[in-house]
Design a protein around this nucleic acid. Structure first.
Length: 556
RNA sequence: UGGGUUGUCGCCAAGCGGUAAGGCACAGGACUUUGACUCCUGCAUUCGAAGGUUCGAAUCCUUCCAGCCCAGCCA
């Protein structure tokens, strides 16, 4: 009997979060409510996809709900533009939050009220220390901090001061509201953490209404509690913030306490996800914006041609744990090949063409050959492909001096042209500099595809495009975005060869009739995606991005 | 050197005291009009190390070692 991944999870085998949830569900908890809480200060990347799939996936699995909440408590870095982009990306990934779209900024009044409550309880105070002093008073990793001289202000004084903070009486940085916890704590997050800071900035949703803004550590537990979140899932670096998270929940007195659970964020081998690095590339125009297909931003991955299904499957496949890990790119590539292999039409495209003349083929003849659109999926049908005397083949598919295990075209050697005939290389035509101009071959009419010819076998089958019918196109091939560089302080530098543009590429005319399906396999060259941003199908302008190459066991 | 946390195959990752799942990658082989796909086969006597408890340990205990995170008025 087969079990699905969902069965496994429900029966207890799966990641540690499922185990937690199942235990919780055996107790008082009777629902699962999660949230994905991005800060709108940049574009989402594949690391966020892991969190999105986790949060929305968990909610779906246990019949619960997942909120989308923008954690917009710091107007210094946030912008509406990002809100829109993030929403688009999550929708593209295939998740839905119904009417549960929230903003931390819509709770600003609540945060303020609870802060007043904490002051009244003697659990928070207004501190006049400068940023430098606060750092100094905080102590170090191995030595305790010391009390702020403002720590014992009276409740009334704190109340008045905090109100003045809110009313814009004080300059940025001159005062903070701090929790009164423990300056001796070995956990630095508990050494009277800052709850509120003064910042005279315009917020993307509240405008100039506020000039004090809550810190993440204070705001987040409240947001979760207010929304009825049961499991607040975040990444490992927040693990030692959890005591503070719980402190806020307890001191404010929320009855239903959300539980913070941390997991290890995604790292992809040879891939930089850091915001500063990506931002620099975008700003310096080294890449074509945040959706450059070389980037692992969700918008970049989308423009590269990855499907949402493939990303979701990838996230499912890599699992979730607390151990810091680096996932190999081959895992991602597997997920998209797997998704596309039975879905797309397989066309013939020649990325780096070299001309072949079939000297014994009639000059004015055109045959329409019928070729299957997919060997994986018969329901995709067939198409007609024009065959003529002059063709293009891939430059790599010919070797003047072939290596031992080369199955393709070489002087005196015979190969099959996919869906057509056997051809034999008879002569190489070179220019004065010795560069190959064209290859003269003869074809054998008896070997036509589908004729049942059994006379002799050939080791290689290569793809081709009729010269007279070739549709010009551009294909973008990609290599690693960065190259290791011991000299560079980051340890790597931008790879100028991360984008290779094949401007001479040609494709069979069927691309016109199938263009709307966007994704293709170009036989033997990989999976490609029509870049709609720069293509103009009506005017025969085709630009394709290579999503991923095909696997190959050819050791060339 | 303080606190937190992690360590199971090259890479992810199950495992929760009963004798090491699975996926990716890789290597053979079969098939093949994509050197693709598919299909077989192989791939941890061992779970960071060393001790201990137990009939039995990756799972419990002890000590040690290594990695990651924390000293933003960022999230």
């Amino acid at each position: 009997m087969e079990t699905t991944p969902a069965d496994n999870k429900l029966s207890g085998t799966g990641n540690f979060i499922h185990n937690y949830i199942q235990d919780d569900l055996k107790g008082l908890l009777h629902k699962v409510h999660t949230r994905f809480p991005p800060e709108p200060n940049g574009y989402l990347h594949i690391g966020h996809a892991k969190s999105i799939c986790l949060n929305f996936g968990l909610a779906a699995l246990y019949g619960g709900q997942c909120n989308l909440r923008f954690d917009d408590t710091n107007p210094a870095t946030e912008d509406k533009e990002y809100v829109k982009a993030i929403i688009d990306d999550i929708r593209w990934l295939g998740f839905d939050w119904a009417d549960r779209l929230y903003f931390a900024s819509s709770y600003f009044d609540k945060f303020y009220e609870f802060a007043v409550l904490l002051i009244q309880k003697g659990k928070a105070y207004v501190c006049d220390l400068t940023p430098e002093q606060i750092r100094e008073y905080r102590g170090t990793l191995s030595s305790p901090g010391k009390h702020s001289p403002y720590r014992d202000r009276s409740v009334d004084e704190n109340l008045a001061l905090f109100e003045d903070m809110k009313n814009g009486v004080f300059a940025d940085g001159s005062k903070t509201l701090r929790a009164k916890i423990d300056m001796d704590s070995p956990n630095i997050n508990l050494r009277d953490p800052i709850l509120y800071r003064i910042a005279h900035l315009t917020h993307h949703t509240t405008g100039d209404t506020w000039c004090i803004y809550p810190m993440y550590d204070y705001a987040h537990p409240i947001e979760d509690a207010l929304e009825g979140i049961t499991h607040s899932i975040c990444t490992m670096e927040f693990e030692d913030h959890r005591p503070l998270y719980d402190w806020v929940i307890d001191e404010i007195g929320f009855e239903q306490k959300p539980r913070q659970i941390e997991f290890a964020k995604l790292n992809l081998a040879n891939t930089i996800m850091g915001k500063r690095f990506l931002k620099t590339l975008v700003l310096e125009n080294k890449v074509d914006g945040w959706d450059d297909p070389r980037l692992v931003t969700l918008s970049g991955i989308r423009r590269r041609g990855y499907t949402p299904e493939s990303i979701r499957n990838f996230c499912e496949m890599i699992g979730v744990s607390k151990a810091s890990s680096v996932v190999e790119l081959s895992q991602l590539e597997y997920s998209i090949r797997e998704d596309l292999k039975a879905k797309v039409n397989v066309l013939m495209a020649v990325l780096d063409p070299i001309k072949v003349v079939l000297t014994n083929y009639p000059e004015d003849q055109t045959e329409m050959l019928v070729i299957e659109n997919s060997q994986e999926n018969e329901t995709l049908g067939t198409r007609e492909v024009p065959f003529t005397r002059e063709l293009y083949i891939e430059r790599d598919d010919f070797m003047e001096e072939p290596m031992k295990k080369f199955f393709r075209l070489a002087p005196g050697k015979e190969v099959r042209l996919k869906g057509a005939y056997f051809i034999k290389c008879e002569e190489i035509i070179k220019d004065a500099d010795g560069h190959i101009q064209e290859i003269h071959c003869t074809y054998d009419p008896e070997t036509k595809s589908g004729s049942g010819f059994e006379g002799r076998k050939v080791k290689g089958t290569i793809h081709w495009v009729s010269k007279a019918h070739a549709v010009p196109m551009t294909t973008n091939l990609y290599n690693a975005l960065t190259i290791p560089d011991a000299e560079a302080e980051a340890g790597y530098t931008f790879n100028p060869e991360s984008l290779v543009v094949m401007k001479q590429a040609v494709i069979e005319p069927a691309v016109r009739q199938y263009a709307s399906s966007l994704r293709f396999q170009f036989i033997r060259n990989g999976y490609f995606y029509l870049d709609e941003k720069v293509s103009d199908v009506q005017n025969d302008t085709f630009v394709f991005n290579r999503i991923v190459s095909l696997k190959s066991s050819f050791k060339g």
